[in-house]
Computed example of a mutant assay.
Amino acid sequence: MSDKPSKTLSICGDDLSCCRPAVRRAYSELRRCGQPERYAFEAALAVFRYHHPGAIPRQAELTVAEWVWDGVMH
């Protein structure tokens, strides 16, 4: 099994960061509305997975965490 994300059906093609603004916006807007951090993170992850459905789940989580928490894992 390969550690590389699948390219099939990816809206962004090879560029994993193309959806970064949408991922960060989903997280920040939910936090601004008072939603718990975990809910905001799960929503941001869902946005990422929409753009990259073939991404390995752990890779997706790490990428989203880096984007929304500025590289700091909580």
Rank of each mutant, 00 (worst) to 15 (best):
P57M: 09
H52W: 05
P5T: 06
E61S: 11
K4F: 11
L16P: 08
D70I: 04
Y27L: 04
K7N: 13
R24D: 01
D3E: 12
L9A: 08
K7S: 13
G13Q: 07
C18A: 14
D14V: 08
I56H: 12
H51L: 01
A44P: 07
W67P: 01
P5W: 12
V23L: 06
L45R: 12
C33S: 09
P5D: 10
A40Q: 09
P57Q: 09
R32L: 15
A60N: 02
V47S: 01
M1H: 04
P53H: 08
D14W: 07
G54P: 12
D14T: 13
T8K: 12
K4I: 08
M73L: 03
L30P: 02
Q59K: 11
S28A: 14
P36N: 08
R38Y: 08
D3V: 08
A55G: 04
D15M: 02
Q35F: 15
A26C: 11
G13M: 08
Y27C: 06
L16T: 07
V68Q: 05
S17C: 06
G34W: 12
V72L: 12
P21A: 03
T8M: 01
A44F: 07
E29M: 10
G54K: 03
W69R: 14
A26Q: 15
R25V: 05
H51I: 01
L9I: 00
L30G: 06
G13L: 01
M73T: 09
W69S: 05
A65P: 00
A65V: 01
C19E: 00
